[in-house]
Amino acid sequence: MATTKWSVDPMHSEVQFKVKHLMITTVTGYFQKFNVEAETQDDKFTSATSVTFTADVDSISTNNEQRDTHLKSPDFFDAANHSQIQFVGNKYEHAGGDDYKLHGELTIRGISKPVTVHVEFGGIVVDPYGQTKAGFTVTGKINRKDFGLTWSAVTEAGSVVVSDEIKLQAEIQLVKQS
C-alpha cells in the first residue's frame, strides 16, 4: 500500500496555548512558526502512521513583548538552549464519529513525556487550486511543571500568578503532497 504524505498549510493553520493569569483571566499565546507533517497509508487519516509537530520557541507571541521575552528566558522555555518544542505521534485511534485521540511524546526543554490530544477531524476537500486538504481541530492539556517550566510567583494576597495547567488548541490544515 502506498504512503501518502501531508504537510501543514501555514496560512490556514494556527497553534495556541492558554494559561490562567492570577487565576481570574486567561492569557492566550501563539507559535507563529511551526510545522506539521503526517503520513497515512491512504488518503484517509484513519490510517495515520506518523504525525510530527514542531514549534519554534522564538516565534512565541502573547501580544506583549515583555512577557514574550520572559517566556523565552530560562525561567520558562529557555529558547537559547531549547529552540523547539516537538510532538511525535505514535498512535492515532478512533474515538467515535469525527473524534480521534492522538497519543505521542511531547518534548519541551529537553524533557519528553507521553501526551494524548483530542483530534476532531474536519474532513478532506479539494480546494479551488486542485490541492487536496485535510482539516483538524486539536485540543489538549498539559501540566507545565512536568516539562521543567517551574517558574512561579505569588501575589501579596497569596494568589498564584500563573497556573500549572496549560490548555493547547490548534487548527491544522494539511496539504496532500504529490
Rank of each mutant, 00 (worst) to 15 (best):
W6F: 03
S159L: 14
D78P: 13
H103F: 10
N143T: 14
T3W: 01
F34E: 10
V154N: 12
I24A: 05
L71V: 03
A95Q: 11
T155R: 09
F77G: 02
K133S: 04
V15K: 14
H82Q: 03
T132K: 15
V117N: 02
V51E: 04
I111D: 08
S61G: 12
I111N: 04
D68C: 01
T139R: 15
Q173N: 11
K91A: 00
S59N: 09
E39Y: 13
E165A: 08
D9M: 12
P128F: 01
Q32G: 00
N64M: 09
E65T: 02
F136R: 15
I172R: 09
D164K: 04
V36D: 12
Q84G: 10
N63P: 13
G104Q: 05
V15P: 13
T25R: 02
A170S: 13
N64Q: 04
P10T: 12
Y92I: 00
Q173P: 13
I124D: 01
H21C: 12
S7M: 05
A48D: 03
G29A: 07
G29W: 13
T116Q: 05
D98V: 14
K141A: 04
D99C: 02
A134Y: 04
T54R: 08
F136Q: 15
H70K: 12
T132Q: 11
Q177L: 02
K72P: 03
K72Q: 12
F147C: 01
N90I: 07
A55E: 12
D127M: 03
E171D: 13
D56W: 03
T40N: 04
Q41N: 10
G130F: 06
N64D: 10
D58V: 06
H21S: 08
D42R: 05
E93N: 06
F76E: 01
A48I: 00
E120W: 03
G123R: 03
G140W: 01
S163Y: 00
Y100P: 12
T28K: 11
I60D: 00
S61K: 15
